[in-house]
Design a binder for these strands. Structure first.
Length: 483
RNA sequence: GCGGAAGUAGCUCAUUUGGUAGAGCGAUAGCCUUCCAAGCUAUAGGUGGCCGGUUCGAGCCCGGUCUUCCGCUCCA
């Protein structure tokens, strides 16, 4: 375990050293739990996003993609339950270090009292909560000597308000401005556009709406590199189904999504399902697809059966009808008619997927060369289809016309995939640099190229090399990317 | 948030009663090189995370703060 932690440390260092991930605002000592993607990280992230987008929208003819705004009407978050469930006064017991939601703590205490006294204290709590009187809540707890269940002491911190949604103002005059939130999940942008997409796209149930984009959560503790960040990117698909069929689709997407992760190169044994026992307020079934990260099994993607909770809530709050008329015939030969669709959600963290790919790819290798000396390298075995740079073009020498030939190959290939050109330093050094950033193919141009138009291609994973006609390089790589 | 550890050049580190910072690798420019990093020359990079205190003098001692990692906690 200690060893694995060390590897994780090295992966983090490697990400920074080779331009994959930088800490946000590092120049100013950084901003906690916020990260920037560098020149290679941005490309890898885009490749992952593109792969997901293609698998969802292009390969499913009943799924379409949208791109909703990050800002949404404040009532959206009341309807979704985020305003109520995402901002709670909390209190910590200093002896047990256990944190409680203040209302849960007081309610539990009230239950131990007789009815009159219990109601009185709950009424007082409600009054204080409504008034946002945090110090009053603490007084109430101390006054009644409410104790921590673990430490049995009354040694409490101050009551603090934890709001997991970031807020800001819309409108340029601060006093008149409305508070709006940065979305804590992308899903609501899909729900509020359900009718727009269904009608304009003439979508028939079952169908899905996919979206990628940033979401924001003011996490109390956000750690483990890019695993839990305050600003992160989700790739979500909400699948709308006929009520009663949700478990069938839940199981379908559970399997489909796990297979997709395997298809991009994640070994099956590194993935597992984890069923939720305690369900969120909106769900009737939920599970995580977990990946074995260097720091343990953790959620990579969530599959949730969200029932009709969200659409019903938005119908209530907006006072608009959000229903679907289903012309398909049921067993009795009648149309299913009007109903509020049920929703099965697949939601994967793009940053977590990025970390998954990087942690699988990172390897430190040592071997003994033919002459008996030790050699080593650090290599990112990123699957070819995902690698930020596909091909490095390396003239063996920077003279004798070799760079000119190399440039010809570069010009031929660069419209099709990302290439890197380098003529400095010994060839072995250049190979090592390409290994470190995960470039799957290197091509060198030497004097023989001038005679027979062949080049040496060197493979990242095997370190083997072979000669091939320069004219076939582009198509060979295109073929490898496609598979 | 609590507890622990850490922060010196891009990276890895050194500077051992406090006396105004060095090395290797890397980078850049050039030379040399016909296939797996470490041949030669030159150059550039640090207000020692930041702020303050003690001191004649602080990278080193003290306080605060920021950031990161680990363990708890949290993660609808």
């Amino acid at each position: 375990m200690a060893n694995e932690s060390n590897n994780f440390q090295e992966l983090i260092s490697h990400c920074k050293e080779y331009g994959y991930i930088f800490q946000s605002s590092e120049l100013y000592d950084g901003l906690s739990a916020v990260y920037d993607y560098g020149q290679l990280g941005a490309q890898l992230k885009k490749n992952l996003r593109d792969a997901w987008w293609k698998s969802m929208t292009q390969l499913h003819d009943n799924i379409v993609g949208i791109d909703a705004a990050i800002f949404m009407h404040p009532t959206v978050w009341k309807a979704s339950g985020h305003v109520d469930n995402f901002s709670d006064p909390m209190i910590d017991n200093k002896d047990s270090n256990k944190r409680y939601r203040v209302d849960h703590l007081i309610e539990a205490y009230a239950e131990t009292l007789d009815e009159t006294k219990g109601k009185a204290i709950l009424a007082e709590m409600d009054r204080l909560l409504a008034a946002d009187d945090l110090s009053g809540l603490k007084q109430l707890i101390e006054q009644h000597q409410i104790k921590c269940a673990i430490s049995k002491t009354c040694n409490w911190t101050d009551v603090r308000q934890f709001n997991l949604m970031f807020s800001t103002q819309i409108g340029s005059v601060a006093e008149e401005a409305d508070t709006i939130y940065l979305r804590p999940e992308t899903a609501q942008g899909i729900f509020v556009n359900f009718l727009n997409v269904q009608k304009t796209g003439r979508m028939k149930i079952p169908f899905g709406i996919a979206q990628t984009g940033k979401a924001f959560r003011n996490e109390i503790v956000a750690r483990q590199f890019i695993f839990r960040m305050r600003e992160f990117e989700q790739m979500e698909m909400q699948f709308f189904v006929r009520p009663g069929t949700q478990m069938e689709w839940y199981n379908y997407w559970k399997e489909t999504r796990k297979k997709w992760h395997e298809s991009i190169g994640i070994p099956a044994e590194k993935l597992r399902f984890h069923n939720h026992i305690k369900l969120a307020h909106y769900a009737d079934a939920a599970l995580d697809i977990e990946f074995e990260f260097p720091f343990g099994w953790k959620e990579l993607e969530g599959i949730h059966s969200r029932t009709d909770f969200d659409l019903t809530q938005h119908a209530t709050y907006s006072k608009k009808k959000i229903q679907y008329f289903d012309n398909d015939l049921n067993e009795e030969g009648k149309a299913y008619g009007n109903y509020t669709p049920f929703v099965v959600e697949t939601s994967v963290g793009l940053d977590r997927l990025f970390l998954t790919v990087m942690s699988l790819a990172y390897a430190e290798e040592k071997w003994t060369k033919e002459d008996g000396t030790e050699d080593s390298r650090v290599v990112l075995r990123i699957p070819t289809a995902l690698a930020p740079t596909k091909l490095a073009i390396l003239p063996l020498l920077k003279k004798d016309g070799l760079p000119e030939i190399a440039r010809e190959l570069l010009d031929e290939c660069k419209p099709h995939f990302h290439c890197f050109y380098e003529e400095k330093d010994a060839i072995g050094k250049r190979y090592r640099r390409m290994d470190a950033i995960g470039t799957p193919f290197c091509v060198t141009i030497d004097h023989q190229t001038k005679e027979d138009q062949t080049v040496t291609i060197r493979y990242r994973d095997s370190m083997l090399q072979e000669r091939m006609p320069m004219s076939k390089v582009k198509d060979m790589i295109l073929e490898k990317i496609d598979t």
